[in-house]
Amino acid sequence: MTKQEALYQYLLQLGDNALIQSHRLSEWCSKGPILEEDLALTNIALDYIGRAQNLLHYAGEVEGKGQSADQLAYRRPEHQYYNNLIAEMPKGDFAFTIAKQLLISTYELLLYTELCHSKDETLAGIAGKAIKEVRYHWTHSRDWCYRLGKGTVLSNELLQQAVNDLWMYTGEQFEMGAEEELMLKEVIGCDNKALQNKWLEMVETVLSDSNIKIPTATYNQSGGRKGIHTENMGHILSEMQYLQRAYPEAIW
């Protein structure tokens, strides 16, 4: 694998995480528990679309075959998407979305802090913008963990259930593929493994402050880096790619 190939792959991973998470959050539109949260969740979705656009645009440049961000976002087959499986989990109820956002944003907070120092200036620039947004996403999900965890018996149960159900998809975030090892060596990418302890400490703090127990199950499911997804992914893509696939000649 050349450095260029590894960077392309790395950018697709980052871009796909943003793309798929934005898709799930955008499903909340007109379905929020209060209007303010409808707006907050779609606002986070908007941040992610912007980030996906920047990362996929840059991936296309690095690849050098003239693929636009849209072509990468809308025309790849399922096994060529490389997001973490947690991103494609269904939106679920509000507790599920909040728990998912906390688990992802905590990781992204650590990841993008590191990527701000990437030797690749474009990536560092994208990270610099992303980190400001991630801080807000993290605070938003943390505050809702407090409210749900310490709100009512029901809200505590639903949040606990959500954390339990999502836990097996969190470990994948800290894996290192061959492209990531190469990116680390080149001081472009980040050492995911080194983030795990800090991530766990941060997540534990928020959850214990929310009266939520850390799951004890140790099984982790992964596959996103290899393009092996959950059954959810095909459904996401069949909606997302519908117009691009049905009218391949059209420019929108």
């Binding site: 898709h23 955008s26 499903e27 908007l46 679309i49 912007g50 961000a69 849209d70 117009l243 691009q244």
Partner: peptide
């Protein structure tokens, strides 16, 4: 929203709907 045909159009549509909610 989930079927918007490009990243830009999805962004504009989401932002617009968010304005309506606002």
């Amino acid at each position: 929203i989930t079927r918007a045909p490009s990243l830009r159009s999805k962004q504009i549509l989401l932002a617009k709907i968010q304005d309506e909610g606002g």
